[in-house]
Design a protein around this nucleic acid. Structure first.
Length: 885
DNA sequence: TCTTTCACG
DNA sequence: ACGTACGTGAAAGAC
């Protein structure tokens, strides 16, 4: 069975160019579009396994379309030179893959593809068209599927005729009519002015084609009728321009684009020139023998075996010299990770040890070194290593530099924070990925000693190579303080908290579970009664069928796969059917049961009755922490039912207290500081309730006139401001129209002019620098800030507004944590810091220290960083986390 | 493995 | 005209 892939080369190149962050090779050649194009190609080849592949390109400016309409594509900006210089490279890549490419003077890529799909239809060949251009949907048929790229280029969405119908309610050929009516600004196709997608779809659903719309325009009313009648010619011409020409005189025989796979050596040559190291790695092209253009220094591997005294002594000497170590701990949860080996990269070579050695008496010297606070250490993910070493009775100390933490500070959004990813970014010799050495999922397997040594050595060597380069980058980017004074020390503080863990009373959770069990069963019975049948309420698919097919409730929102049944939708459906509140209630209880009762019980350690979470310091793009195994940053609080879970979080020693302190309005205080807005600053210096103050200024009323509804709206506006406001988002949140939301926002910015200026300035700054920063110089890159795609750009703009706020708040509490731990130790207190929940710290407190801690905790938190407005905390304590409210 | 839903700040 | 609030992690079902 043949399978054809037809790729719209120009469209994909454009998409790739705008979707990918800038990228150049050493010669200064831009390569981002080439890279995006290549990853798309690889993915399609892998997924579709085609027998024939062809990439079509536009040829020249003049086509039969410009002959009939000179302005066609007339408004399009000139292709940026950064992109046009990449076309020859893309063609080289295509050639390197051994894929046929084709262009024909006077025709565009779409026409070539359209003609080939006609052949595919005639001959009954399965075909996939890859493009970023919605116009292509007109080609969809039984045999022909259109793969449209979405966000980026390597992800695509497949459209067969049913999917086109699903999305637009149109047959594929009517896509042409759609364009005829609405036009296309990017191609300068006029359409009918004032008619956009909404109106065009409405017209087509009623009349079917452009011709019918024009013929029966007397059935239309008002402005729309006028516009249609005035622009009949324009509509017809637009339809003609949007019609893909499917009779291009192709001399092509289909055999000419048969695809037989690529020659590794040829592809490797192109990739080397482009410096696509990750792709060379991924395709294992180094084996093709072409890649060793720069002679790679062989690693000197120095295995340390049990009983080999000379090797052990050499290692112990090396440990006192500069070097870098790597510790391999297998498993996601570092508290239960399994040590399988270690390596130390020194001047003379890389020492490598396996698990047996680590557990033998030979390792005593190495272990002592790990615990020696006077022995400086350079390593990789030492926070994780520190936890993994607990089982060996080792308390890791003397951490000086961690390449994963540094990589996160240098670029928190980099997707690959593994050693091989870091090595690739920084330009070191490539390091095999863990997946390539260990396999993944069920196939995971630790290889034999030799392969393991080689892998660990390669990693330790990369750590040794990366550290000085990263230190230099941190220095250059003014991030020394952030790294050495904040993140690095915090890593140890987090490990302390995690090692300590928090005591959880299993019995009280079980009891809550038993109560929930009864109520869940009762809800289920009621729901089945209303539905008239039993079904899986947890299945969005089955629930959707019951609600919307069987009970005929109105569909509010759809997801990619069917009906949406989220809480937002259900709340709107409440008036329609008695089953709805039951489902909401069931969902709430079931969530508590599965995630919190059962989930937490699984995490309580039998021996100690404690839960030890794992804070991840290198995940969140804004600088926040995240928490896993289990997540203790999302324990219920908003609803009383769930809040009860907190009663199970108790002190680990009798008579002690749980004390919690949270920052009050830290994000809005940060905003007041960085924007310098007068009104907002005043709210905090005068200690007025900030939402009330916002309501007063937005609605222009005195404090006495602010009712709870006004305050609620003002609160939502404040949230919106912090998130990077959009009228749509606010309207969703408050369940009001977009217009009303827009008015609120206008009034807000009128009242808080300093905030408006900050929002405008930060977006400009992001556009100029390509990144935004927090008060402590934490940086987040926003490559999409200049995207031409509205969605991508808007998202980047909101992120530019939000990240300095959320990130600075994260900086502040992290500072407080480091200082807090120092103070607890310096003052010889027995109380311990246990948890962090973004703006809250939780402690267990010795009764004798209660008064001290009630004073010390807020003092440290409020003075963590001096702003132009005061920082404020609320402190409370009790016998458990619930009581500390 | 991906998608949907929902818990938190 | 575009189709959205910012940042996370876990459970369950669908594929």
């Amino acid at each position: 069975m043949d399978k054809w892939i037809l790729i719209d080369g120009n469209s994909i190149a454009y998409r790739a160019f705008f979707a990918m962050p800038p990228l150049t090779n050493a010669a200064g050649l831009h390569t981002n579009a080439v890279f995006g194009f290549t990853t798309m190609l690889l993915k399609v080849l892998e997924e579709q396994k085609p027998t024939h592949v062809l990439v079509a390109f536009d040829a020249g400016k003049v086509t039969f379309r410009t002959e009939s309409f000179a302005e066609y594509k007339g408004t399009r900006d000139k292709t940026p030179s950064e992109l046009s210089e990449q076309f020859p490279l893309i063609k080289e890549v295509v050639k390197g893959f051994g894929i046929r490419q084709f262009e024909l003077a006077g025709y565009e890529a779409d026409d070539i593809i359209g003609t080939l799909t006609r052949l595919a239809d005639e001959q009954g060949v399965e075909t996939v068209v890859v493009s970023g251009d919605k116009d292509m949907l007109q080609l969809a048929s039984d045999k022909v599927t259109i793969a449209l790229t979405r966000k980026g280029v390597s992800e695509t969405e497949l459209y067969d005729p049913a999917a086109v119908h699903e999305r637009y309610g149109l047959e594929p050929l009517q896509i042409i009519d759609l364009k005829g009516l609405m036009g296309d600004t990017s191609d300068n196709i006029p359409g009918i002015p004032g008619v956009g997608e909404k109106t065009a779809l409405k017209l087509l659903h009623e009349f079917g084609t452009v011709e019918q719309v024009l013929e029966r325009s007397n059935e239309l009313k008002g402005k729309l009728k006028e516009r249609v009648e005035e622009n009949k010619d324009s509509a017809l011409m637009s339809k003609k321009l949007a019609t893909i020409f499917r009779e291009v005189p192709l001399a092509e025989e289909t055999g000419n684009f048969a695809y037989g796979g690529y020659e590794p050596a040829e592809l490797a040559e192109v990739f080397v020139k482009l410096e696509f190291k990750s792709l060379i790695e991924r395709l294992n092209l180094s084996a093709a023998g072409v890649v060793s253009s720069e002679p790679q220094k062989e690693l000197t591997l120095l295995p340390v075996e049990i009983g080999d005294t000379a090797a052990r002594e050499a290692l112990e000497v090396a440990l006192r010299q500069p070097g870098a170590f790597y510790l391999e701990a297998i498993g996601d949860n570092p508290h239960h990770a399994h040590l399988i080996g270690a390596a130390y990269a020194a001047e003379e070579g890389v020492y490598a040890m396996d698990a047996d050695w680590l557990q033998s008496p030979d390792a005593e010297g190495f272990k002592a070194w790990l615990g020696d606070s006077q022995a400086p250490k350079i390593g990789c993910d030492l926070h994780r290593a520190e936890l993994a070493l607990i089982s060996l009775g080792i308390h890791l100390q003397g951490v000086e530099f961690d390449i994963v933490l540094a990589a996160y500070i240098l670029d928190p959004t980099a997707t690959d924070q593994t050693i091989s990813g870091i090595a690739a970014r920084i330009g070191l010799p490539s390091v095999p990925t863990d997946e390539s050495v260990y396999g993944k999922g069920a196939k995971f397997k630790v290889p034999g000693k030799e392969a393991l040594y080689a892998h660990l050595a390669s990693k330790a060597d990369a750590v040794r190579g990366a550290a000085p380069l990263q230190r230099q980058q941190l220095e250059e980017q003014g991030m020394n303080h952030l790294y050495y004074e904040l993140e690095q020390p915090l890593s140890g503080v987090l490990a302390d908290m995690e090692r300590q863990g928090i005591s959880v009373d299993a019995e009280s959770i079980r009891q809550l579970g038993a109560e929930l069990e009864i109520r869940i069963k009762a809800d289920m019975a009621e729901i089945y009664r209303h539905a008239g049948q039993e079904f899986n309420i947890n299945s969005p698919k089955q629930l959707g069928e019951i609600l919307f097919d069987k009970l005929g409730l109105p569909v509010m929102k759809k997801t990619k796969t069917g009906f949406s049944t989220d809480a937002d939708v259900l709340e709107k459906l409440e008036p329609y059917h008695e089953i709805i509140p039951l489902i909401l209630h069931f969902r709430q209880l079931h969530k508590l049961q599965s995630t919190y009762v059962e989930g937490l019980l699984k995490e309580i350690r039998q021996d100690s009755g404690k839960i030890h979470t794992y804070y991840r310091q290198t995940i969140a793009a804004t600088g926040r922490l995240s928490s896993q195994f289990p997540n203790l940053q999302n324990i219920p609080i908003r609803l009383e039912e769930g809040r009860k879970i907190r009663k199970a979080f108790v002190p680990s020693e009798p008579g002690w207290f749980i004390l919690a302190a949270d920052y009050s309005q830290i994000e809005l205080r940060v905003l007041a500081h960085i924007s310098g807005d007068e009104g907002l600053t005043e709210a905090f210096t005068e200690d007025i309730d900030v939402h009330t103050k916002t309501a007063m200024d937005v609605f222009g009323v005195p404090q006495s006139a602010v009712d709870s509804n006004m305050r609620r709206s003002a609160k939502a506006v404040n949230f919106g401001i912090v998130y990077g406001i959009s009228d749509f988002g606010l309207s969703q949140n408050l369940n009001i129209t977009r217009k009303e939301a827009a008015r609120f926002i206008d009034q807000y910015f009128e009242a808080f002019k300093g905030v408006r200026k900050y929002m405008d300035d930060i977006v400009l700054q992001a556009r100029q620098d390509g990144y935004v920063t927090t008060l402590l110089e934490r940086r987040r890159y926003l490559p999409e800030i200049g995207a031409s795609n509205f969605n991508l750009r808007s998202f980047a703009e909101r992120t530019a507004m939000n990240t300095p706020i959320q990130g600075t708040a994260a900086d502040i509490i992290k500072l407080a944590m480091v200082k807090m731990q120092t103070r607890l130790k310096a003052e010889g207190l027995r109380s311990r810091m246990l948890l962090q929940v973004h703006d809250e710290l939780v402690f267990e407190v010795h009764p004798d220290e209660l008064e001290t801690m009630k004073r010390l905790v807020p003092e440290v938190m409020e003075s963590a960083l001096e702003l132009n407005v005061p920082l404020k905390t609320d402190v409370s304590y009790g016998a458990n986390w619930y009581e500390a409210k």
